[in-house]
Structure formats: C-alpha cells, structure tokens
Amino acid sequence: MGTQVQTQRQIRPRLNIGSWFQRLARDMRKHYILYLMLLPGVVYFLLFRYFPMYGAIIAFKDYRVLEGFWGSPWVGLKHFNTIFSSPFFYNVLGNTLIISIAKLLAGLPVAICFALLLNEVRLHWFKRSVQTITYLPHFLSWVVVFGVLLTTLSPSSGLLNKTIVAAGGQPINFLADPAWFRVVLVISDIWKDIGWGTIIYLAALAGISPSLYEAAAVDGATRLQRIIYITLPSIVPVIVLVTLLRIGNLLSAGFEQVFVLYNPSVYGVGDIIDTWVYRQGIQGFQFSVSAAVGLFKGAVGCILLVTANWLAKRFAGTGIW
C-alpha cells in the first residue's frame, strides 16, 4: 500500500486546485458508479459522525440544556483550565501514557508472534482448536475477568498466592499493591485479547500468494527465513495500520478494564484520564468537562497520529495516508 502511494506521488503531475476539480469532474463522469458506491458511507459519516460533532462546542461553553448547544453561554477555556490546573491531572495523564504504552509495546508483538506461530501450524484441527479457544476470552466482560483474577490473585485464597506461600514466600496483594497493579493490567489485557488480536493478521496472511513461499522453498530458505522475509513483510501494512490507530488513541488506556479492576489503594498508579473524569462527573451534569477532555484527547491523538504516520512512511515505507 505504501509503495503504491510513493510511486503514485511521483507520477502525479503537478496540480493546482482548478485542475484538481477538473480531474474530479472528469473522473465522476467516467466512474460514476464508484461515486454512487461511496454515497451511502459518506451519508452515514456526515449524519452520524460529523453532524453530531457540533456537540463538541460545549467544551467552550457552560452547557445549559434549555438554551441548547448554541445558546449556552461561552466561557472560553474555563473547562480546560479546570482540567489542566488540577494537581491530579498530570499524575493521571502520566498513568494513562504508561499503561497505554506498556499495553502497546507488550501486546502488539505478542499478537503478531502468535499470529505468525499459528500460521506455521500445518495440522488444521490443531490450528482451529487453538484459534477457537484463544479468541474466547475476548467475549468475557471485564467484570467476569475480575472474578477470575480475584480467585487467582486473592491474598487469602488465590491460587497464585497459595503457591507463593507454599514456596515459603509472603502473599502479595497483586490488585492492591501499587508495584504490581500495572503489571496485572497489562497481562490481563494480553490474556483477554491474545487470540482476538491475531484475527486481523490472519486475514492478511491469507492473502499472501502461495507462489512466494514455493519460490523461497526452492531457494532452500529455512522456515525462520521465510517468516522473516515473506510472511512478516506482507502483513506490515496491517501492523502499521493497527499500530497507528492505537497510537492515535494512546490517551484511552481502557476505561472498562481499569474501572473494574482498580481500587483506592492503587489510584496513585492506576487512575487514568477516563476513570478520573468519570469519578469527577459521577455526581452529575458534566457534559462540558467531558467534551473538553474529549477535545484534548483528540488533539493529542491527532498530533501523535500525524507524527507516527510520518515516521511509519519514512521507516516502514507505508502509512495510513
């Protein structure tokens, strides 16, 4: 996908806006079917994604329902000031970034490796069984996963702590120990999505032409070499796509998971932006503050995404655009 972009750019003649519209008009006449195909999706995005965006302006207003989104009084950056001047905000921001980045750095390679390993299995029944089983945890809600974690990690009756005690150690309250909590978050996140995360790569792997492997086999390439030189490069566009989108959402570190798993003992290390805002707003009407946080997260995501896309194009030769 990336290489096509590059060549495309080279052969594209220099344009000005006028000729771009001319080209568009010409293309529309010639390929009107393509534009018709696009229509339902574009209408959807305008109606359900872009039109509701007017709601974001209440980040700069004190939202008064009866005066509506437009009539509510402007307050400028008041809500942003509220957020940024909170002494807790920077701690919470730090936690969010640490947890997000840890999940990204640990989770992504695991999913890719797991997909590659699955791809190497020749026995269909084995491959299918492993896939079917490992993708199931994705469907468990975090509340259920919390139940499992509690039975495993409980300091009084948990399996893991019983083992630690049997080995002569002191029981660890993993869920209430600030030193362990983030580890629990990352590992439980990987556990839950290890199978599910591979699906997208397996779809890409299915698209690889068999002739490539045959040629490599004839050349006497080992399995590992084939993985590194054929399989991996062919899923790079998907890896880049997934990574970039996750980088764009780096400030969302998994609200539901943290909300269910954390407790006051680990607020210091586990509290993320979304849970913090939730607790601030638990008493009620804080649509303006939510909107401000949403805009902040979006703006940061935008910067991260543009940077990451530029880096990806430079070093991996492919990006989203």
């Binding site: 096509q4 972009v5 495309q8 771009w20 080209r23 568009l24 293309d27 390929h31 393509l34 696009l38 574009v42 995005f45 359900f48 994604r49 872009y50 039109f51 509701p52 965006m53 007017y54 709601g55 974001a56 989104f69 989108l245 764009g248 959402n249 649509f287 939510s290 909107a291 949403g294 805009l295 997260k297 979006g298 995501g301 935008c302 995404l305 989203i320 655009w321």
Partner: peptide
Amino acid sequence: SNFPLRKPILLAVLFTTLFSGGMVPT
C-alpha cells in the same frame, strides 16, 4: 490510488476516530 477523493475522505474518516460530539447529539 487514482481516485481523486481518496485522500480527503480517508482523512475525514480518520478524523472521526479522534473526535466525536458525545452521546447527546447522537
């Protein structure tokens, strides 16, 4: 790749992954 609206629409779609108007307008 030679579709003229490709890039604007792609960016417009990406934009929606970052910004939303919240639950009430929807």
